Amino acid sequence: MNETKEKIQRSSRTVSIGLQVLLALLILQVVSTLIRNKVVFSSTFLMIVIIHLAVVILAISIFKTIEKNNSPFINSIPKRMKAIALLIFIVSLFLSPGYGLINVFSLRFLSFENFIGIIIAGVFYSFAIMFEYGCLLQKESDETL
């Protein structure tokens, strides 16, 4: 059991560090793109960048929480996973880099990438529900002992 907790802690730390590097690279890429191309901040571009940053920050917080508690079944984790799912859904459905805000009632602007993003959001949401159930089982197990 302790060996498994150590593996959870090590892998969470590794992923957290990797995500922090990814966050730094994402910020550098955005700044570099803005400077090099002298891109004017459009509302769509800004929203996409903010949402991507939020997703990475939420993911980092998930893995830091797992590392700290030696368990993935902490009540805050499914909430953060649902937030990630919602953000991915928003980017996939409402924000399209080529078109700006799309007309929700006209699906002609939805590309293959949009649909993939919606599916990924659904998968994240499903995992969040599974983690909620895992939290419930963990709580029952802790109370039984």
Rank of each mutant, 00 (worst) to 15 (best):
V104R: 01
S11K: 04
L23P: 07
S12E: 02
V49S: 14
S92T: 12
M47F: 07
L107P: 10
G122T: 09
I51E: 04
E6Y: 03
L86G: 03
V55M: 04
L25I: 12
T14Y: 01
L95V: 14
P97L: 05
I129R: 00
I120A: 15
V40Y: 01
S126G: 03
Q20T: 09
A54P: 07
T144W: 15
S111R: 09
I8S: 03
I50E: 11
F112M: 06
E6F: 00
R10A: 10
I17T: 03
N103T: 13
I74K: 04
I8C: 02
H52E: 15
R36S: 08
L87I: 00
Y125P: 06
E132Y: 01
K82F: 01
E140D: 14
I88C: 05
F131C: 03
N103I: 13
V91F: 02
I57M: 09
L145M: 15
S92H: 11
F63A: 00
S32M: 08
I74V: 15
A54K: 10
S32T: 11
P78L: 07
M47R: 06
I8W: 10
F94W: 08
V40F: 02
L53Y: 04
L25C: 13
Q29W: 09
S71C: 06
E3V: 07
N114T: 13
Q20I: 06
C135F: 05
S61Q: 13
I8A: 05
G100M: 09
A54N: 12
I51R: 04
V104F: 00
K5V: 01
L28I: 11
V40N: 00
S32E: 10
F94Q: 09
N114I: 11
T33I: 08
C135W: 01
F89I: 09
V39G: 00
Q29V: 09
S96Y: 14
